[in-house]
Design a protein around this nucleic acid. Structure first.
Lengths: 299, 299
DNA sequence: GGATTTTCATGCATATCCCTCATGAAAAAT
DNA sequence: ATTTTTCATGAGGGATATGCATGAAAATCC
């Protein structure tokens, strides 16, 4: 036999309004239907919960006992489901996004502002991680999804490419290379290179390519972060290999970007999330906005 | 749209068992039906609660959020309704019974013992009241129901006659009246009467009849309780007018009961309870037992 | 005091909903 | 590659709830 939740709800309403008719109206059903619901509930539990004459209604002793619990059940149910519904409709909720610092600096702010306008009540937590740590944060559930450099496929995760970001050579205007229209990887031999080290995801890509070009694995200067690299380049210590998206030129004046070619090497920025797991509405909305924003930004 | 309580229940089971099939089996429905319930729930709230592949099931973030509440709802509902059901089936519960002292002495013990055997876990509280106080206790809700002397109908109460208890003249074996087979009310003139006073319900009945018989309103000795009356009669101070049910003869030896006739006057012992209010199962059971026991006892 | 109004209960027809059976699809196990 | 396991889907039938019209009982009204 089925659980007469309708009956419980009806019971609470009758108890509160003291009348079948008013309760029925309140529930937008006929009085007939309401009577039947109460009857079903009573026959389910096997005892009379509401003593009713043609004139008045009153709870029986057991009805009085049951009322608080019944009220709680109905409230929990209605509010609980309602919360879920509004969540789904409005996309209410918190989002935690793991991202590369570099992306957080440049591309993300626009997307976040757009999201914040659309969902003023939602909070966003940004985890700024470098390299593989983004992936880890997503896989371990610390973040709803992440933005990272595409890498070896992970069975637990799905990726979706956002844009391909070419590497460029950044150097001071007074640096010899600044005069070039472009420069091939194999022509970097005579240049003091500033490269990223540490856990950076770029490091792997750049170093691989350097090896292919027959140069030493590491640049002459290995720094931990992009700002440091830019600072060094600015002082003309050497030329830095950086993603174009960093837009070093605009960060510090007096710098020049020279495209790196043969081959044009990209780092693939991708959205990453757990495979087979639905994003929360809030996360899903942000995911969509980022995808739309950054894809159109593609160079 | 209707509240998908089945879906919530299904959701909890799937969450706990990690499998649609096992959950379906647990609920004794087909896997198909269970899938449908989950689908209905999800379409009701508008978001996916369980991420499922053909191989595995896992809660989505919102599902995880919802699980504790869902579990509580289902538990409350199932346990709450179950409690009511067992209550109705077993008649579990406490009963408070208001009764006349006289009835409590004599007829009730048998009924109570029988009830106690049938429902070993139920507690009974006895309110011993005299006269109209039984009625008051019932009307004011202090007692579930009562046993009293039938009187003017009260709109709030319903009565059900249990037995009619004739009044007898109780006297010592050495009392002149003890030789009579019966005695008419109008022949009580020369006898020193011991009557009940105070709040006794019998008082009204007896006094009314005495007036009708042309005797003084009160007996020569007016006592407050039956035991006192019996004690006086035993010492041959006079003859007492008492309900036959008191069985004075067996309480104190050396006493004789003489039927009072012209008319044979009864006090009507009745069950009384609040009109239009369902008795709790426990009370209802006791009510039934008393009715059966004492009615068969009718003289 | 009888007519009217109010309120809960019931019989019947209908529409809705939900379940089961059979089958499909996808992924893991053999 | 085949089998097995597990969730999803389509269709049909049966159970169940709903609504309308009406009844019954009690309070109110004139």
């Amino acid at each position: 036999m089925k659980i007469p939740i309708d009956g419980v709800q009806a019971f609470v309403h009758v108890a509160e309004l003291g009348s079948f008719n008013r309760a029925a109206e309140h529930l937008s059903i006929t009085q007939t239907a309401l009577t039947r619901r109460i009857q079903r509930l009573e026959s389910f539990v096997g005892l009379r919960l509401i003593d009713r004459t043609t004139r008045s209604t009153a709870l029986s002793p057991m009805g009085k006992d049951f009322l608080p619990l019944a009220r709680r059940i109905v409230d929990d149910l209605v509010h609980g489901l309602d919360r879920l519904r509004t969540t789904s409709r409005l996309g209410v909720g918190d989002v935690t996004l793991a991202t590369l610092q570099s992306v957080a600096f440049r591309q993300l702010p626009l997307a976040l502002r757009s999201y914040a306008r659309k969902y003023p009540h939602n909070r966003i937590q940004l985890l700024e991680r470098s390299g593989a740590l983004v992936t880890d944060a997503v896989r371990e559930g610390q973040a709803d999804f992440g933005i990272h450099i595409q890498q070896d496929a992970n069975p637990d995760l799905t990726e979706e490419m956002l844009m391909r970001d070419p590497f460029v050579l950044v150097c001071s205007r007074s640096h010899p290379a600044s005069k070039l229209k472009r420069v091939g990887w194999s022509n970097l031999g005579g240049i003091d290179l500033i490269t990223l080290g540490g856990a950076s995801g770029n490091r792997r890509i750049v170093e691989t390519q350097l090896v292919k070009a027959g140069l030493q694995t590491r640049g002459r200067f290995v720094v931990e972060s992009t700002p440091s690299a830019i600072a060094l380049a600015r002082e003309n210590v050497g030329a830095a290999i950086l993603p174009a998206a960093m837009n070093a030129t605009t960060v510090a004046s007096g710098l020049v970007e020279v495209p790196l070619v043969d081959p044009v090497l990209y780092r693939a920025i991708a959205l990453v999330r757990r495979r087979n797991e639905t994003l929360s509405p809030a996360a899903s909305a942000l995911y969509g906005i980022i995808k739309a924003r950054l894809c159109s930004d593609k160079r």
